[in-house]
Design a protein around this nucleic acid. Structure first.
Lengths: 354, 354
DNA sequence: ATAGCATGCACACACGATTGCGCGATGGGG
DNA sequence: CCCCATCGCGCAATCGTGTGTGCATGCTAT
């Protein structure tokens, strides 16, 4: 059964002209009333405003954008593939930060993904060169990202959440991931561990590179060795954690502590260990990153580096809007502080309550 | 230090006129080339297309929208407060479903939240009456939602993810939540439980109401009683689960099985039980809803009703776009099938591997 | 009394695209 | 050979809003 639900765009549209006619003034006067132009008399202003109210006038944003050359819209450009991101709590918090700030500042958020692999440039061109958005927040902080090339070539307002070496003057918000990984690793060292592994993410991501560096530095400074079989690269998925765990536990010489690049991956590690009958933290201690809400609800709760996810998004949005509106920025790179949240997954001393 | 990064919107804009001039044709011809008008010669078409390529032409979407009265944009209207939603995995999957389909169909997604409490109508009016979007996906399926009133009064393309009684002809995608809760409860009954509780969400949400009904029906059919102290209402937060668990375990007569409205809440219950030294499923069996990715990674893995979250979003987007483009729909309400995923949290028979 | 200025508003054009209509050129059939 | 259909394209109006300019009017100052 086909049902006809709407009658062909019959929705009547109250324009500025209709208001003008009803108020007995010119369209320009109505426009100036809306924008609070000083040279409009109190009387006309009130009358026009009343009529706008009565007739239910809402300015056409498209017409407005056309002449003002601004859309009051930002785009969040998702990396490809985006599946991992969506599966991570991390993303929701980030989004919440971005949305809170941009909504407050009167900007709308466009959530953008490439239509097909390798189509990012095409997609962004359409938005950016087609003047659909005023600015872009990039979540794809890969090395040598052609998107960043393109945006910076066009001098388009862009803020990167992450890091890039190739474009020093692009705005970015990031953590000190090197130090964060150092702190996580150092924490395990302080707990007495000498065999510490690292479950990383895709090596093309700067965040994975940075955390790797911090991990290595901590070991080096402590005079410990980073054995290559204790370092595993994967994705930001639980399966990666599970696989990494299987591999590590099959080694003749196993690590006793593990730094894991993401909480979700950490969940995979933890679950695998539990299934195999190992105890955390006794058999293997775990520290991971991002401190998603469920980390503290794991059994045992997972120690994690809180990277200020909400703040990351909030700040990115704030920087971008400031850049668009004022065309100046105070700093081109802002580092959100991190902090280690210690939980049972990495504390052997803690009495077990079960 | 203030740094001037951009030189005042200097970004040159290639318009249809520029192309026309360079190609020695009229703007209308260029426009027709873009839209593949049949009455344009192969020769001119190719020449114009080559020049567009050379000069890097991208049509101005605002101008296009102004005349075509269509924006190729949909809005996802978030409920208030949105905090809970963002903290739930559920949301990411839903978003992924919506985005995948709408991107495929050539629509952009606007993520919209009210600027301040009670501002939903204002916010949506601006978007809808200001012709900023072509359609709206509503996530707020409260009872008596004034937003739905407003949208349906204006006959604006809308799809609701959830249910409403007040507006029978509004399009919606939903689960059979009553049956889903029935299935969850029935599963516990089959496991031999006779004292079964229900941890619900805000009673104003239709999803909470529906699941409550299914829970009650299952008990009634089995000749079991739903004691009021075994039914607790809360939010979609882990804390709610924790509190509900504390309360239930303090009762003189405790439930032995628990149906929980959301996995995240279930995590809270589970964690609380573990901390207090109770065993799941032996002391208390748990079945929850949504089957987020981490459910199977809990210790023990949580039984959950998979509601086809991705499919929910995908279908909503598909319905909406079809309504916009064809103005007809095959069905005004689509039910996404659910299925119970049984895991250790509700199976006493399963041998424990630890 | 009149020049001068501030005030309040309308006219007209612009933003960048789409599209109905019309006009010249071409070609084929009677 | 002429008429008419078809083809290929340009002209001009239009979408709804913003804004520079100009023209009245009324008030102040000399």
């Amino acid at each position: 059964m086909h049902t006809r639900l709407r009658d062909g765009g019959s929705m009547i549209m109250v324009t500025i002209k209709d208001i003008a006619k009803a108020a007995g003034v010119s369209p320009s006067t109505v426009s100036r009333v809306v924008s609070n132009h000083p040279r409009i008399s109190k009387a006309t202003s009130q009358k026009v405003k009343r009529i706008m109210e009565e007739m239910g006038y809402h300015p056409n944003m498209m017409a407005k954008s056309l002449v003002s050359k601004t859309t009051q819209t930002l785009s969040i450009m998702l990396p490809r593939p985006a599946e991992e991101l969506f599966q991570d709590f991390f993303f929701g918090e980030l989004l919440r930060g971005i949305l809170t700030q941009s909504t407050r500042a009167g900007y709308d958020m466009l959530l953008t993904a490439a239509t097909s692999p390798g189509d990012e440039i095409e997609t962004v061109s359409r938005l950016v060169l087609g003047r659909r958005v005023d600015g872009v927040i990039l979540l794809s902080s890969r090395v040598n990202d052609p998107l960043i090339d393109m945006l910076s070539k066009h001098d388009f307002p862009t803020v990167l959440i992450g890091r890039t070496d190739d474009h020093p003057n692009i705005l970015s918000v990031d953590n000190n991931n090197e130090q964060a990984a150092y702190d996580a690793t150092h924490h395990l060292i302080l707990q007495g561990h000498e065999r510490i592994g690292f479950v990383s993410g895709p090596p093309s991501l700067t965040v994975a590179q940075d955390r790797m560096k911090g991990y290595r530095r901590a070991l080096r400074e402590a005079g410990l060795q980073a054995r290559s079989e204790w370092i595993v690269e994967g994705e930001f998925l639980q399966q990666s954690g599970y696989r990494a765990m299987s591999f590590m536990m099959s080694l003749p010489e196993r690590p006793s502590g593990l730094v894991v690049i993401d909480d979700v991956v950490g969940f995979g590690v933890l679950r695998g260990l539990t299934e195999l009958g190992y105890s955390v933290p006794d058999d293997l201690s775990i520290v991971s990153f991002n401190n998603i809400a469920l980390s503290e609800l794991a059994t045992p709760p997972i120690s994690s580096i809180d990277i200020g996810t909400y703040q990351l998004g909030y700040t990115a949005s704030q920087m971008l809007i400031r850049l668009i509106q004022e065309e100046t920025v105070h700093q081109s790179r802002i580092i959100i502080p991190h902090r280690l949240i210690v939980r049972e997954s990495s504390i052997q001393a803690l009495p077990k309550r079960s």
